[in-house]
Design a protein around this nucleic acid. Structure first.
Lengths: 197, 197, 197, 197
DNA sequence: CATGAATGAGTATTCATTCAT
DNA sequence: AATGAATGAATACTCATTCAT
């Protein structure tokens, strides 16, 4: 009768996200989530409608936070290079805070996006692409980036390069998301061969 | 008229690989593979022991070919930069020829590698890492690469950069694997910002 | 077009009987029979209509031979004790010659007998019971057997005692069916405790 | 109202045992067990891991009880003849209480015993043989049994004689297991022909 | 809130059987 | 006579979900 406590829901979502990230959504049984939460499978249904709704909440929550960060960057009116740097940094910060959600997103988004319920994934991808492509084109026109770049290829290159890091990134004391972001950026922007001084 | 058994197996494996790549291994039902092959689910078992053995053959076949290419490169005695270039090019060529297998590998390898049957995946990963890390360290020592690189991070950067491309790369007339490889390499080696000439 | 050779059929039936006896009818696959015969599963269907028809032929053939022996004994006009001895001996002879068929019969007859196709099994059981019960009652009336015997119980006792031997009897040089029969008979007739001389 | 879990398991095992005994383990489908229990096939898996584990529990439970009885007899220090009598009586008592388990054991033990999971069946058979053979040999040496007995044959004779009764024995008011045991014993010990007084 | 027990739709797999060659 | 390939029905088992307590 009384509505489920939001705090408990949050805990449970965190647990579910970890298991989904570890094993994949399809390979994860509701029972495994319940085990990890110290309850029985059926009990999860007091808090959530379905396994799919857990996934939904995890992904939607992640995208909400991500776009909060991105929108701030895009609204700041930075130059193309600085925008790229800020977006990449924001992305690594998001990986740091929602690692499991990012990993789930990486693995499942493509197949989920075709379902009506997960239409917002496709929408987010479009916005994402628009933001990055726009910035790259602006930089190309202004000479911030090499003139011979294939913009779409470069977009994919940066996008994949950044997000795939979620599959191995584990937060520890040494590598803060900002440090990782700076190292990635130095490779993406300047490459791995030495520049002639 | 009807092709001999090994040819049929090959056909079926190709079909299965495409469906696995499209939907994920777990989310793919044997019935879907059979549908795609124009036969009934049970009929697949005349050719294969199990769904898992199909996956096994797909991945093992891919890794065999991949290592044939890599071993050739590594035995050629090239310099570090040329080795990286050749490895990346070999990888894109492999993506071109075994796109679905690469996509499956990307998505499933981590979870499969812990199973005894798929132990060769873990072994291949170790060899893979050794080859790349060794080359990078050699280049670092010899000045082919920037002295401030974090070798492990760079390894992951290049590795992911290349393989993730399998998730969107579709061969067409314009972008041969060699062309894609060259464009990627120019970004990885020299970055996306213009070099002061 | 040309009818299958009866000789080959006989061979195949013998092989099938052995596998059925070893593993049970249900647990035996047509493929296992074919393997044992050095052919492919489908090829058996040139010789037989179905797996069930193999079972049918095996059991019918065995019962035919068995009754040939029994009828001879029953028609001979022996006394009750001699009849029992002759029936037991005939049974052991049949076990010796059709061990697998007897083993199959023991294991499957009860469940098969309810099917119309195998109605002859039930019929045979009834005849069997009539022959044994009649002999025992004749012996009881004539004083050949102990007066305090429960005839039905004794019938089951002897029947089970004899036929179950098929589950372990293996023909070898030392124990001919006649020898085994004589030893059994001495136990059944005189018991295992010493008779006061 | 609803009985606690172990009781329900016991109920279900009893039902499964009856169906296995009636139709044979292989010929019994999980659905048939579920039907007999008034539930759906899948629901059985809430209580048991597999069809095989039901069989396992049934057989192990039966053997545990059987050996409880046998060990009591063997430890009592009776003479050979009294030991045989007590073992036979214990066996019929067990047939009375676990009729289906005994019938399953009779039909399936030979083929199951080779599987690692059912290794305890083979072990039990060895112990069983040791107990009976030892008793028979003791009796032979001490003159309780006829000097001309073939001990192994006699062992099989008695063993089969007793256990095969499970296939037809149905408890009713008139024939308690003790009564049946006494009648069997009188035949086994003294035979069916009259003794010269 | 949580449990225990069940449902029912699905899923991989098996296997007797068929049939063109 | 035998093969290779397929069919189709059945079967054990899984799992998300429901619900009375």
């Amino acid at each position: 009768m009384s509505p489920p406590s939001p705090a408990r829901r949050g805990e449970l979502l965190g647990i579910a996200a970890e298991v989904f990230a570890e094993q994949g959504y399809n390979a994860t049984t509701v029972r495994e989530i319940a085990d990890a939460a110290g309850m029985l499978a059926g009990s999860l249904y007091y808090h959530f409608d379905s396994k799919e709704s857990m996934l939904d909440e995890i992904l939607a929550g992640f995208l909400d936070e991500l776009w909060a960060g991105y929108d701030g960057v895009l609204a700041a009116g930075l130059g193309p290079r600085e925008t790229i740097e800020a977006l990449v940094t924001a992305s690594f910060r998001e990986i740091d805070r929602h690692r499991s959600a990012v990993a789930i997103y990486q693995r499942e988004a493509r197949n989920l996006a075709v379902q009506p319920r997960f239409g917002y994934l496709a929408e987010s991808q479009r916005q994402f692409e628009r933001a990055w492509l726009g910035t790259l084109e602006r930089g190309l026109a202004g000479g911030s980036f090499r003139a011979d770049l294939d913009v779409r290829l470069t977009y994919r290159f940066i996008r994949d390069t950044v997000w795939v890091a979620a599959s191995w990134y584990r937060p520890d004391g040494q590598h803060s998301p900002e440090v990782i972001a700076r190292q990635y950026l130095s490779m993406v922007l300047d490459g791995i061969t030495p520049r002639p001084s």
